[in-house]
Computed example of a mutant assay.
Amino acid sequence: MRTALVIGTGLIGTSVALALSARGIRVHLQDADPERPRTAAALGAGTDESPDGPVDLAVIAVPPAHIAPTVVGLQREGRARACLDVGSVKGRPRRELVELGGDLSRYLGSHPMAGRERSGPLAADETLFEGRPWVLTPTPETDTEVLNLALELVSVCRAVPVVMEADAHDRAVALVSHTPQLLSSLVAARLEDADDAAVRLCGQGIRDVTRIAASEPRMWIEILSANPGPVADVLAALAADLDGTVRALRAMESADEAKRAAGASDIEAVLRRGNAGRDRVPGKHGAAPAEYETVAVLISDTPGELARIFADAGRAGVNIEDVRIEHATARQAGLVQLMVDPVAAPVLSAALRERGWSIRQ
């Protein structure tokens, strides 16, 4: 691949362009909003000038409803040897492409499983896809050259290719991406009219659950409009679980000891099912989830504190596997939770104490 055209210079499109440009590929940028390609170009993602002739690969990073028309337009104008989209829904755009008379042999649907709450070119990062699954949905009609270009793109972005059938992908993301977004928003919505006293009690749990509720609503309307059926199926199953959970909690209010015990048993079953499901979520580098031990350290809210604690952990020869920060309400301090290998936990605790850090159990 020597040349590429990225259509749609938001978070994903610009991140792709940054990764391609870093490898010396000439990238042309296009967007319905002319300001966004200029911004992306200023970040080093490529040029907002139109290509002189057909590019090797066109990457379509537009909302799902616009994927098929964009691909058909590129194919009819002969602007690219291959077209690949990076939308979060795969089945409907492919069917719309067929309806519009598009050429499936020169097109491949894909979905990099990466993102963040912020959107737009200024949120882009060429390392966004590193180590992340990148779903490819080839069909029997897909030309080998197109598949090879897609694999090259995934390699350049340092992602991990995963081949799936389009509708299977849509059912999967309904469960692991689209439904969590709605649930996060539903929980966060309960805070809108909550008492100030209750909101002041927000801790790490509510922050974790509502983190993705900060996402752009218009973007999610476009995504959910292209995959409503599978998402509704998951939510229907969840609704059944919620109904049962509500009945169990009501039973725990009963004066009847047997009903209270039955309700508690049902709640325990839900929590244990949650444990089992959480255990299936891939851990570091896609491996099975590891059991880490937490070393909690009190830090002041001043510049350089995080860098200093990481440096001290490095001097102790301890690798930080994960990190969480819980901010203290109304205090200029916070609690940093350092997740490490259990064997390394006492080593890290001792080393940090020696360097003056306050360790919390």
Rank of each mutant, 00 (worst) to 15 (best):
178 H>E: 10
80 A>S: 12
359 I>A: 13
337 Q>V: 01
324 R>K: 12
275 N>R: 14
326 E>W: 06
219 M>H: 07
305 E>S: 13
1 M>F: 04
120 G>E: 05
298 L>M: 07
86 V>C: 10
79 R>M: 15
234 V>H: 04
182 L>A: 13
76 R>F: 10
185 S>N: 09
205 G>N: 10
126 E>V: 00
40 A>C: 04
164 M>A: 08
347 V>G: 02
327 H>E: 14
32 A>T: 14
14 T>F: 02
281 V>K: 06
184 S>P: 00
22 A>W: 03
122 L>R: 15
269 A>Q: 10
42 A>Q: 14
6 V>F: 07
236 A>S: 14
271 L>D: 04
268 E>Y: 07
177 S>H: 03
272 R>I: 11
213 A>M: 05
159 A>H: 01
120 G>Y: 04
217 P>R: 09
75 Q>W: 06
312 D>N: 09
84 L>C: 09
226 A>D: 13
219 M>L: 15
156 V>P: 02
127 T>A: 15
32 A>E: 11
187 V>I: 11
266 D>N: 07
278 R>F: 04
96 E>W: 01
352 L>F: 10
117 E>L: 08
163 V>M: 11
101 G>K: 05
84 L>F: 05
94 R>D: 00
310 F>P: 00
323 V>A: 13
230 P>Q: 02
129 F>G: 01
353 R>N: 09
193 D>R: 10
331 R>M: 08
288 A>H: 07
154 V>L: 11
206 I>K: 01
233 D>A: 13
203 G>M: 01
336 V>R: 02
117 E>W: 08
8 G>T: 02
43 L>P: 08
158 R>E: 13
167 D>L: 12
8 G>Q: 02
221 I>Q: 14
90 K>F: 09
277 G>N: 12
212 I>C: 06
71 V>D: 06
136 L>A: 03
42 A>R: 14
164 M>S: 05
242 L>G: 08
76 R>P: 08
358 S>N: 10
3 T>V: 03
209 V>C: 05
230 P>E: 02
243 D>C: 00
186 L>C: 07
185 S>Q: 12
230 P>S: 04
4 A>R: 07
305 E>G: 00
183 L>A: 09
351 A>M: 09
215 S>F: 09
337 Q>F: 15
191 L>H: 11
137 T>L: 08
160 V>A: 09
170 D>V: 02
119 S>E: 14
50 S>P: 12
350 A>D: 12
45 A>E: 11
263 G>W: 01
264 A>T: 01
231 V>F: 04
171 R>W: 12
173 V>T: 15
78 G>H: 06
176 V>E: 12
249 L>P: 00
319 N>E: 14
305 E>K: 13
19 A>G: 13
22 A>T: 01
208 D>K: 00
306 L>R: 11
49 E>K: 10
294 T>V: 15
244 G>F: 00
335 L>A: 10
254 S>M: 03
195 D>T: 06
219 M>S: 07
341 D>L: 06
225 S>A: 15
168 A>V: 14
26 R>H: 15
89 V>K: 00
